[in-house]
Amino acid sequence: MTTMPTTFLKSLNWKKVLLWTGVIFLVLFCLAPLLWQVLTSLKTNDAIAKLPTVYFPNSQQLTLDHYLILGGKFLRYMLNSAFVSFTSTLICLAVGAPAAYTLARLKIPGEQIILACVLVVSLFPYVLLFLGLLELVKFFGLGNNYLSLIIPYTAINLPLTILVLRSFFQQLPKDLEDSARIDGYNTLQMLLQIVLPMTIPALVTTGILAFIFAWNEFIFALTFITRDTLQTIPIAISKIGGASAFEIPYGPIAAATILGTLPLVILVLIFQQRIVQGITAGAVKG
């Protein structure tokens, strides 16, 4: 009689210990590199270069200089990134939603082939595309023009948008559309006035994912935009350099990392649930 509860307790504790080890490891593993950047960004240059490493800086070792040094130029990069990401996200939704509706409801020939193509295309690494795109950019004279980023960013987010919205449209009750049709709505009116308003949650979900992907894109921005004032955040941060090649300004880089990723961190904090839904819907449905 007495051994039962104790063994039960033991196994319970063992499980709990394992679980909490896992939780603590997960949180540390995921957050430590970012927290390290936060700490670095707040330390004076002397504290950064002090050995052994300073983990708990005193008040003399703390500074906001690394943030101030970034200046108005950095604001410009933030606005560049925001503009490109936001515009491409809007276009992606405007173009992707009708396409998803067609694939969900309107029977067109070759539907399965189109769907398969959309799936395969989402697996292409961008490095396979930049050569051909570079030629197009040169041909149309789009170098140092945001269209050279907005169009590719729209495209790289289209597969996910189409797949997620398509599965969302399929889940809508068909009766609604049937009765709208009886009321004399044509397909376009129905899409704009009845279906899309109900789709807003899914549009927000895919929109957030598209925005994050656009904000983070590197290789196209590196290749098509060479003018300093037009650069986006990932490029601008990777180009922060010191007076010499051997002197890497870790403080300003860390400060730029924190500021440049702040919008993303805020999005994650607010829309955690939706982002998870979007990722899993995109991958599992895809």
Binding site: W36, F218, I233, P234, I237, S238, A254, T257, V265, I279
Partner: peptide, 24 residues
């Protein structure tokens, strides 16, 4: 909280966090 923490690495730009790892 743990789920939100787990999303952070996914959401941050690879190029920028690559620099953070080079510093680490």
């Amino acid at each position: 909280f743990a789920r939100t923490a787990a999303l952070i690495p996914w959401a941050l730009p690879t190029a920028v966090m690559g620099l953070a790892w080079a510093w680490i």
